[in-house]
Measured scan of single mutants.
Amino acid sequence: SLEELLKLARHALRHGEEIHVLDRVITDEHEIKRLIEELERLI
């Protein structure tokens, strides 16, 4: 769900981890922040 993805993204950002989204691995902090902003808009 989007909520789950948002939780994962926030966790990854906090802990400096990578996040796997739709067969992509996002490691860049700015990309993760952008993902979080997009998800928050959708929810």
Rank of each mutant, 00 (worst) to 15 (best):
E18T: 15
R14T: 15
I26F: 15
H15K: 09
K7M: 11
L13A: 05
L5N: 01
R34Y: 09
H20M: 12
R14E: 15
E38V: 14
E40I: 10
A12E: 00
L2F: 08
V25L: 09
I19Q: 01
L6M: 04
I32S: 01
K7Y: 08
H11S: 07
E18L: 07
R10P: 00
A12G: 05
E17Y: 14
E29C: 03
D23Y: 02
A12P: 00
L13K: 03
L22F: 14
L35M: 07
T27M: 07
R41D: 06
R14Y: 14
I26G: 02
I19A: 04
E31T: 08
D23F: 03
S1L: 11
H30I: 12
R14N: 12
E3H: 10
E29A: 15
E37I: 14
E4T: 10
V21Q: 04
H30S: 13
R34I: 12
L39T: 03
G16H: 13
L6C: 02
E31D: 11
R10E: 09
I43G: 02
I32K: 08
L13Q: 05
I32E: 00
D28A: 11
K33H: 08
G16A: 06
E4R: 11
I19D: 01
I43K: 02
L8Q: 10
V21W: 15
L42Y: 07
D23A: 04
V25R: 05
L13S: 04
L8D: 05
I19P: 01
L42T: 06
V25Y: 07
I43A: 03
D28M: 09
L39D: 00
V25N: 05
L8C: 03
K33F: 10
A9E: 00
H15V: 09
V25K: 06
R14Q: 15
L42R: 10
A9T: 03
L13V: 05
H11F: 05
E37A: 15
E3Y: 11
I43P: 01
E17R: 11
K33M: 15
E37P: 01
L2G: 01
E29W: 12
L13W: 05
I43T: 04
E4H: 11
L5Y: 05
I19M: 12
A12M: 03
R24L: 09
I36N: 00
E18D: 09
K33V: 12
E3M: 11
D23M: 04
D28P: 02
K33L: 14
L42W: 07
L22Q: 12
L8G: 04
E4C: 06
E4S: 10
I26H: 04
L2Y: 10
H20G: 05
E18G: 14
R34K: 14
H20D: 04
L22N: 15
L42P: 00
V21H: 08
L35R: 03
T27D: 07
V25S: 06
V21D: 03
R41C: 05
R14V: 13
L13M: 06
R10Y: 14
L6H: 01
D23T: 04
E40N: 04
E4I: 11
L42N: 04
I36H: 00
L39E: 00
R24Y: 08
D28W: 05
S1V: 13
V21M: 12
A9Y: 12
R34A: 15
E38A: 12
H11I: 07
L6I: 06
G16S: 07
E40M: 08
S1E: 13
I36F: 02
E29F: 13
I36Y: 01
L22Y: 11
K7Q: 11
L5M: 10
R34H: 11
L6N: 00
H11A: 09
R10T: 05
K33W: 11
E31G: 07
I26L: 12
I19L: 15
L22D: 13
I26Y: 15
E18C: 09
H30R: 13
L42D: 03
L22W: 12
E31C: 05
L5I: 08
S1K: 15
E18Y: 09
I43F: 06
K7P: 00
I36E: 00
I36A: 02
A9F: 10
L5H: 02
D28Y: 06
V21C: 06
L2V: 07
L35W: 11
E17K: 15
I36D: 00
I19S: 01
E18I: 11
E31Y: 05
L5T: 04
A9P: 00
D28Q: 10
E17V: 14
L6P: 00
L39A: 01
L35P: 00
V21P: 01
H15F: 12
L6E: 00
L22K: 14
E31A: 10
L13E: 03
I36K: 01
E3C: 09
I43H: 02
V21R: 03
E29Q: 14
E38C: 08
D23I: 03
K7T: 08
R10S: 04
R34C: 06
I26R: 02
I43M: 06
A9D: 00
H30Q: 14
R10H: 11
T27W: 08
L13I: 08
E37D: 12
K7G: 06
E17C: 09
A9G: 01
L22M: 13
E29S: 14
L5Q: 05
I19R: 01
E40V: 09
L8S: 06
K33S: 09
R14S: 14
T27P: 02
I26D: 01
G16T: 04
H15R: 09
L2E: 03
I32D: 00
A12C: 04
D28E: 12
L35F: 13
E3N: 08
S1H: 13
E18H: 13
L5R: 04
K7N: 10
R34N: 11
E31L: 08
E18W: 07
D23L: 04
E37F: 14
H20E: 07
I43R: 03
R34F: 09
S1R: 12
I32P: 00
L35H: 03
H11C: 08
L42E: 06
K7L: 11
R34Q: 14
I36T: 02
R41A: 10
V21T: 07
D23K: 02
H20C: 04
R41E: 06
L5A: 04
L13Y: 06
L8R: 14
R14P: 01
I32G: 01
I43Q: 03
H15G: 05
E31Q: 10
A12L: 04
I19G: 01
V25M: 07
T27I: 10
H15A: 10
E37V: 13
L6K: 01
I32H: 01
I19W: 05
L6F: 02
K7V: 09
R24C: 04
S1N: 13
L42A: 09
L2R: 04
G16N: 10
H20F: 10
I26P: 02
E40W: 07
R24N: 06
A9W: 12
K33T: 09
E18M: 10
T27Q: 10
L2S: 03
I32M: 07
H20N: 08
L35T: 02
H11Q: 10
I36P: 00
L6T: 01
R24M: 10
E17F: 13
K33P: 01
I19Y: 05
R34G: 09
S1Q: 12
R41M: 09
I32L: 13
R41K: 12
E37T: 11
R10N: 08
G16C: 05
E31W: 06
E38I: 13
H15M: 11
E18K: 12
I36Q: 00
H15Y: 15
E3D: 08
E40H: 05
I32V: 06
I19V: 13
I36M: 03
E3R: 10
S1F: 14
E17G: 15
R14L: 14
A12K: 04
K7D: 09
L42M: 12
E37G: 10
L6R: 02
L22C: 06
E38H: 14
L5K: 03
E17I: 15
A9S: 03
L22H: 13
L5V: 05
L8I: 10
L6S: 00
E4A: 12
G16K: 13
H11M: 06
H30Y: 13
R34D: 10
H20Y: 09
I36S: 01
H30M: 13
D28K: 10
I43N: 02
K33N: 07
I26S: 02
D28N: 11
A12V: 03
L5E: 01
I26T: 03
K7C: 05
E18A: 15
H30L: 12
E17Q: 13
E3P: 04
L39H: 00
A9Q: 01
L2P: 05
R41G: 06
E38K: 12
S1M: 14
I32T: 02
D28L: 11
T27V: 12
E4L: 12
H15Q: 08
R41Y: 09
S1C: 10
E38S: 11
E37N: 11
A9R: 02
E31M: 09
D28H: 09
L13N: 02
A12Q: 03
V21L: 15
E18P: 15
A12F: 03
H11R: 10
I26K: 01
D28V: 07
K33Y: 11
R34P: 01
E38D: 11
K7S: 09
R34E: 15
E29P: 15
R41I: 08
E40S: 05
